[in-house]
Design a protein around this nucleic acid. Structure first.
Lengths: 244, 244
DNA sequence: GAGTGGTCTAGACCACCAA
DNA sequence: TGGTGGTCTAGACCACTCA
């Protein structure tokens, strides 16, 4: 069960515990928002000391996969809770003002993966996809034209009605309705000129500079589950990036 | 010296140790690249257990301020070492290819802080500044027009000759020549249209979309020490951002 | 082999929260 | 008041590096 030997493929105990915890998360033993067993309970289950469990949990908490609350317990993180909503949205107003965000659904269609999307989402060619297009409005001004692509299989029954029931918060919906939680994303940013379609939707001149944000989101086990392209007007907004 | 009481302003011991370590770094007791005393030595010095020192160092290592090397010791991080050079540069080629980066110095002038820069760099109005402009070339192609502004006082004697002696690596020069290490930076990204000056330098049409990267870099104690604006051509490069 | 960081344990005690 | 996470300690042993 647990390997304490010093074999060549040596891994620290807390790392093995981390894997076991992750497997329980993948298996759905603890769903987003739920509390996991206490450190002492887990130590008993895995036959290690509390300190070792602690280190495994520390690591998962550092990756925002678990959240510790002193006096209460340790919980599976979620995109639902107050203050952590829109955790992946790095766009903020130039004046730092708080904003009201609105979603306007443009379309929600089925399609088939071409070679490009098959590779990005690690699917078979011609696998079924769902494509969502929408317009994000900040304090009444249309600012982002969003194009989302996800594999159809894990998101059975997802349609425009369902999106609107969830008020357009896709990550919350993924968790609540499908138990799929995105834990990490990679974004590639470039500057592009607005084409006719986008210029129309955002009310811009053809060729106006837009910030293009291409995002791939990953769920447990680093499995890519969503591709997204946002074209953003950055006249009075900017993308914040912290370097350490 | 060390406060173990449970006063209302309670701070964990390891946090206090962290502050003491940071002060030694600010004071120059250990310079960039040097090894700091072993955990056991530090535990003796601060009269705490090794585990507590360990936790303080873990935290500083997590912020890339210190670097641990098993079997060797713990070192003050630097922008100089192989593999960590250009740690703040998030721009990569679309095809993932490794690139040769070159600097071409355009100008290096003295100026005075207006209200805007005085605020950003936390200086008195009309404080002396140094402004550097340069062109960064990737594998022979001009890609970034860079404008750097730093306070003149801490960087006495910095001029174009000195920059060229350091092969244009500003962060290395800050450390080597002035003992100033940047530990953190904030970047604000927007898409802009090329103006006449930049279009000329980068060989673009007027109005071509460029990625604008505005960066403020901070040294120990979160003191802002450098402002920088990079205008980047993103035809075959992109800015990588990891979200967790 | 000596010295460094890295892991693991067991136990004591503190801070926080809810009932 | 009891349960949770958070801190701190002391000590044993492991893994890595270098002379």
């Amino acid at each position: 069960m647990i390997d304490k030997s010093n074999a060549p493929n040596y891994r620290p105990l807390y790392d093995q515990i981390k894997v076991l915890l992750t497997q329980s998360l993948i298996g759905g033993e603890w769903r987003p928002g739920e509390m996991i067993p206490s450190e002492i309970d887990l130590a008993g289950r895995f036959k290690v000391s509390q300190g070792t469990v602690r280190k495994a949990i520390d690591s998962l908490a550092g990756e925002n996969i678990l959240i510790r609350r002193q006096g209460k317990g340790t919980f599976v993180a979620t995109h639902n809770e107050e203050g952590i909503k829109l955790r992946f949205l790095r766009l903020t107003a130039a004046n730092g003002q708080k904003e009201v965000l609105q979603n306007e659904l443009i379309s929600c269609n089925k399609s088939k993966a071409d070679a490009h999307f098959a590779k990005i989402l690690e699917l078979k060619a011609s696998a079924a996809l769902i494509e969502v297009k929408r317009l994000l409005t900040f304090s009444g001004r249309p600012l982002i034209y969003d194009h989302v692509v996800i594999p159809a299989a894990p998101f059975k029954g997802l349609n425009s009605t369902r999106i609107e029931e969830n008020q357009g918060s896709l990550y919350s919906m993924y968790e609540t309705e499908y138990g799929i939680r995105m834990i990490r994303a990679e974004e590639r940013l470039t500057a592009v000129a607005a084409n006719a379609e986008v210029a129309e939707v955002l009310g811009l001149k053809l060729g106006a500079p837009l910030l293009s944000i291409e995002r791939v989101s990953y769920t447990y086990g680093d499995k890519p589950m969503e591709w997204r392209l946002g074209l953003c007007l950055t006249d009075d907004h900017h993308y914040m990036s912290e370097l350490e």
